[in-house]
Structures are given as structure tokens and as C-alpha cells.
Design a protein around this nucleic acid. Structure first.
Length: 565
RNA sequence: UGGGGUGUCGCCAAGUGGUAAGGCACGGGUCUUUGGCACCCGCAUACGGAGGUUCGAAUCCUCCCACCCCAGCCA
């Protein structure tokens, strides 16, 4: 991390850690962990947790483990663990040699279960899933005790061992903690600790036929690893008493669990289940579709790790359910790319411009600044010639009052080139559409400034027709049409809320020639348009750019509010 | 109706009894060879509501209201 990171604001978890260190709690250690389940790709919400856990450890000279919560083999896969490792690393964090898997502890967890059975605090229950649900009671009524609750320790031990041996079919029995079927906290009504699953695990293969539940596993793993501050999301607040109960009965070390609110963003969705659905139904091309809020999607879109870290610092950490305006994310990437991205010129929707008084056979290479924010970025040469292309949006035959780009009779500047004046408009006789603009140039304004100090109100980007390189450009909009669409509960509502214009492809934009050699992952600012990066789909003969984000656009705002005229 | 949480500007978010930080968004302006960037100014007499304690309350007390989470052999 460097000086350009924004300053870290105070938040309640940092405050707790500072107090713990002041009081000498945990021998002043700070040891956190990021515990994803490898059942999908990481998204920007996970980035918040990653920045929090790894960031706090780094800040206080502590450690942060990467631990996969892989207790459900039916949903997990190595593809996911690989992507998660890549994403965490890409975000700029390192777990050194502390890569763990809950599955590494399966034997140890099993022994903990055996001990609880021996202590008379766990039992094998033969009730079906439906029956367990019935016996659990409701939010307002206490549950009833399972008829198998008072099995002998010997019977429980035998049955549990045979569950492990694979003697029983899936769903036929579970191991349950014997706590309190009347507890107002449903998590304490004899929760399931182990279930039978004859499924191959991505790491342990077929070694196990029983798998521990998350609630039994997670707290144990944190304890085994000596985690000091176990940071998780709000929905686990109710589970804390259960984790404490397990640890107390087993006389194990207690981490301190602290809950914070997960991130929500407008115009997108942060549920792994819903993201998986988008991928499976082909509504998104893949997990790394640039429209997805996944880390891999953002990366492909052109977001930088630093911009995401800055975003996470800016949104804060608190306990109230919050939905952050996606404009803040966009602000964070603009801020970062403004400093870093080389500027280039490219025309998305070309309008042919002929400079009538410029020789047909002449080419001038003009100097252009690579990045006005960074003098060290230097300059480059761009070719100018008689036939050019400018943006269709930069010309209007009948301009409204506040439009000060090119129009009949009007003079504007071509960036780094010349002042040109529109002399004539050529239209398609069939459609009446403007297909060409005829202009003259002022030779005294070479480079883009005039000796007489004459001002022009607009500066346009442009590209020389014969030199331009074609490129496919993919423009992205929000995933959903409405800010809160991700909340949709039914799949139908959810899909209907998708923004049909989230992807717009421009098959052949025209770019300045230097871009011909651009490589996947490289980011540029297309002047006056936005930030773009080369997509991995690009090949030797075919450039493909993703628009990361547009530039702020004051003219668009004027048009939108209807104040143009 | 049980339990656990949360309510401070359009969106986040500081604040922990002493008289409402900051960011984004938004509005106005300066500058400008990007209608970008940068810079300047503005933007909560007010902290879910009602009472109360206090010289003094967003901060303490009481009651009320709203929203979120929990009835997976998911995590």
C-alpha cells in the first residue's frame, strides 16, 4: 500500500482492537481470518471483508489467515478455491503460509464431537429433516425434545462411529448438540452438528461420509488457529451464543466475535446464489462478466485493486444495514485512473470530416500529452491528415444554446492539432442524415493554440482516417434498471429487473494508431469519453476494449435536465 | 406475539453529556488545448417519535414506532 491510499477513518472494530491492545487482551495480538466458502466467486462485498480482516492485521502488525469453510462438498469446487486465492492476491493481500481449510480439521472436529457425546452433550437423532423442523417449534413456541435425546453415551458413540463408517444413508441420522429445545434463540434448540453425506469432497475425496455443519465447525477453527478477532456479518450475531457454548463445553480458547453489516450496492446484487443464477442461466456471460459485481468481473472491467481498497475504506464499517450508492465505487475508479491512465483519442461513433484546405498527400505527426496529471508519462505523436473522424455527438447542424461543439460556421479546436471551421454539411440524399462535414483549418493554430489569443469554446478528440485502427468497444451500464432491483425476492422479478441495455457493443470504433499494440489488461483514458481497458477477448487482429466507466459529463447533465436550449 | 440487531443530510458515516466531522451525490463559481481533473463556495437549528433527568442530551432514563436477521441435515 502507498501514500495515495485515503486515510482510514475510525470505525468500531478498529476501536475495539485498540482498546484490547491497550488492556493487554490476547497478549496484544491481532489475528484475523478471511473465511470464504468455495462455492462461488468473490464479489465486492467480500472485498469489504478482505480489506477489513487483512487490513486490520496489517495495520496492527498482526496476521490474517485465509481459511476455506469447505464443510459442504455438494456445493464446493476447486475452481472456486483457485479463483478466491487469485482474487485475494490481486486485491493486494497475502496470507503467507497461512492457507487453511476447515477440511484440514475434520479429524479434530470429529474428536470434539466425540467428546461432547462422552460428556452427554450430543446425541445421534433419527428424526427426519421434516420431523426435526416440526420438533423445533416456532419463533413464538418452544420446541419439543427429540425421542432420541436420551440415548446412552455408549449407543451414541456407536451410532456416530457407524455414521462415519458409512453404514447409514444420507439423511437418516444426524448428530445434535443437547442444549435447550425451549430457548428463545432457535440456534440453541439442539442444533445439528453433523449430517450424513455420501459425497466426494474436493479435498478429502471419499474419506468422509459425514460432514460437520458450519455452526459446529467455524468457531472451532477460529479457536484452533488462535484467532483473536473473529469478524463476521450481522446474521451470525444470533449464532455467537452457540459458538460460545461449544467452546465452553470443550474448554477451548475463545476468540472475540464481532459482527458488521455486509455491503449492498445500488443497481446490482450481492447474493452468491443470485449471481450463480445469472451465470447458469446465461444472463451474464460468466462470473467475470464485466457487468458482474464480482472481483473478477470488476478486474476485467478495468477496476484497479487500489480503487477497490479505497472504496472499502470510504464506505466505512458499521452495524446498520446499508446500501451504498454505486456512484461512490465509480468515483473511486475514476479517481485512481485519472492519475494512472494514459490518455489517447478514439472515436466511438465516427463522423467524417474533410479539411478542404489541407493537402491530400500530407501527414503531420503532432505531439500529444500522455497524462496531464503525470508529467513523467511524457508525450507521443499522433498523425493528422486531410480526412479525419470526430464523434457524431460533437456536431450538430442546429445547435441548442449551450452546445458549443462543432456546428455550421463555427470554429473549434481539434486537440493537439488545429482550429477548424465548419464550412459545409454533406447529407445522405436518401435519409437526410449528416454523413460528412467539410471544414477549413487555420495553419497558424498548429498544436492547438493561436498566437492571437483567440478562444474557441470546444476542444474535440479526433482520429486520422487513414491511420486509425478499428476496435470493438463494449459499453456497460448498470446490471439492473432500478437501484433496489437486487432486492427482488422472486426469480421472475429479479430477471425482469435486469437492465436490457447493460451491454452495448460498438463493433468498429476508430482509435489512434498507437493503440494497435495495446495488450489485455491495459487501461487508457479515451479523452472526453471515459476509461477503457483491453479485454482478454482481444486477439492480434482484433482489438476489444471494455469501458470501465465514463468520465463525468457536464454536457450530458445539461441535456438530461432539459436546459440545453 | 419469542430472541437478536439497527435507526444522525438524497446515499454512506463520525460522534460515547458540552452545544452536529468527513466522503459521495447535488447546486453555484474559478481554472481549463479533456463540458475531465484541480480549486473555492453552498448543502442536517438538527440526530426515528414522545416524555423525562441535567445548567446543558444525538449521547443518560422511560415508553412507543420503523426496518433487518433467526424456524437449512446451507454458509
Amino acid at each position: 500500500m502507498n501514500d495515495s491510499e485515503i486515510s482510514k477513518p475510525a470505525h468500531f472494530i478498529r476501536t475495539i482492537i485498540i482498546e484490547d491492545r491497550a488492556s493487554g487482551r490476547f497478549e496484544r495480538r491481532v489475528h484475523t481470518r478471511f473465511p470464504p466458502e468455495p462455492n462461488g466467486y468473490l464479489h465486492i462485498g467480500h472485498a469489504k471483508s478482505i480489506c477489513l480482516n487483512f487490513g486490520l492485521a496489517r495495520e496492527f502488525g498482526g496476521r490474517c489467515n485465509l481459511r476455506f469453510d469447505d464443510t459442504n462438498p455438494t456445493k464446493e469446487a476447486v475452481e472456486y478455491v483457485e479463483s478466491i486465492k487469485e482474487d485475494v492476491r490481486w486485491l493486494g493481500f497475502d496470507w503467507d503460509d497461512r492457507l487453511y481449510y476447515a477440511s484440514d480439521y475434520f479429524e479434530r472436529i470429529y474428536q470434539c464431537a466425540v467428546r461432547l457425546i462422552e460428556q452427554g452433550q450430543a446425541y445421534v437423532c433419527d428424526l427426519s429433516a421434516d420431523q426435526i423442523r416440526e420438533y423445533r417449534g416456532t419463533l413464538t413456541e418452544p420446541g419439543r425434545e427429540s425421542p432420541y435425546r436420551e440415548r446412552s453415551v455408549a449407543d451414541n458413540l456407536d451410532l456416530f462411529q457407524r455414521m462415519r463408517a458409512g453404514e447409514f444413508p444420507d439423511g437418516s441420522r444426524v448428530l445434535r448438540a443437547k442444549i435447550d429445545m425451549a430457548s428463545p434463540n432457535l440456534n440453541l434448540r439442539d442444533p445439528v452438528m453433523y449430517r450424513i453425506l455420501h459425497a466426494a469432497h474436493h479435498r478429502t475425496g471419499t474419506a468422509w461420509r459425514i460432514y460437520p455443519m458450519y455452526d459446529f465447525t467455524h468457531g472451532l477453527c477460529d479457536s484452533f488457529e488462535g484467532i483473536t478477532h473473529s469478524i463476521c456479518t450481522l446474521e451470525f450475531e444470533d449464532h455467537r451464543p452457540l459458538y460460545d457454548w461449544f467452546l465452553d463445553q470443550l474448554e477451548l480458547y475463545h476468540p472475540l466475535q464481532i459482527e458488521f453489516a455486509r455491503l449492498n450496492l445500488t443497481y446490482t446484487v450481492m447474493s452468491k446464489r443470485k449471481l450463480l443464477r445469472l451465470v447458469e442461466k446465461g444472463l451474464a456471460r460468466s462470473w467475470d462478466d464485466p457487468r458482474m459485481p464480482t472481483i473478477s468481473g470488476l478486474r476485467r472491467r478495468g477496476y484497479t485493486p487500489e480503487s477497490i481498497r479505497n472504496f472499502c475504506d470510504r464506505i466505512g464499517v458499521a452495524k446498520s444495514n446499508a446500501t451504498v450508492d454505486i456512484a461512490l465505487l465509480e468515483y473511486s475508479i475514476r479517481e485512481d485512473l485519472n492519475r494512472k491512465a494514459p490518455r489517447v483519442m478514439g472515436v466511438l461513433n465516427p463522423l467524417r470530416v474533410v479539411i478542404e484546405d489541407y493537402p491530400d498527400d500530407r501527414v503531420e505527426w503532432l505531439e500529444a500529452v500522455n497524462n496531464p496529471e503525470d508529467p513523467a508519462a511524457g508525450t507521443r505523436q499522433v498523425p493528422f491528415s486531410r480526412v479525419l473522424y470526430i464523434e457524431q455527438d460533437d456536431f450538430m447542424e442546429q445547435p441548442p444554446k449551450k452546445f458549443y461543439r462543432l456546428a455550421p460556421g463555427r470554429e473549434v479546436r481539434l486537440r493537439y492539432a488545429y482550429y477548424i471551421t465548419c464550412r459545409e454539411v454533406v447529407k445522405d440524399p436518401a435519409t437526410g442524415a449528416v454523413i460528412e462535414v467539410r471544414c477549413t483549418h487555420d495553419p497558424q493554430t498548429r498544436g492547438g493554440s493561436s498566437a492571437d489569443g483567440r478562444k474557441v469554446k470546444a476542444t474535440l478528440h479526433w482520429v486520422s482516417a487513414v491511420h486509425a485502427v478499428p476496435a470493438e468497444i463494449r459499453l456497460y451500464g448498470h446490471l439492473f434498471s432500478a437501484a433496489d432491483a437486487g432486492d427482488a425476492t422472486s426469480d421472475e422479478q429479479f430477471e425482469a429487473a435486469l437492465n436490457p441495455e447493460s451491454l452495448q457493443v460498438i463493433p468498429q470504433a476508430l482509435l489512434e494508431p498507437g493503440l494497435a499494440a495495446a495488450q489485455p489488461g491495459q487501461t487508457f483514458q479515451f479523452e472526453r469519453l471515459g476509461y477503457f481497458c483491453v479485454d482478454p477477448d482481444a486477439s492480434d487482429g482484433h482489438l476489444v476494449f471494455n469501458r470501465t466507466v465514463t468520465l463525468r459529463d457536464a454536457w450530458a447533465k445539461i441535456q438530461k435536465t432539459g436546459n440545453a436550449s
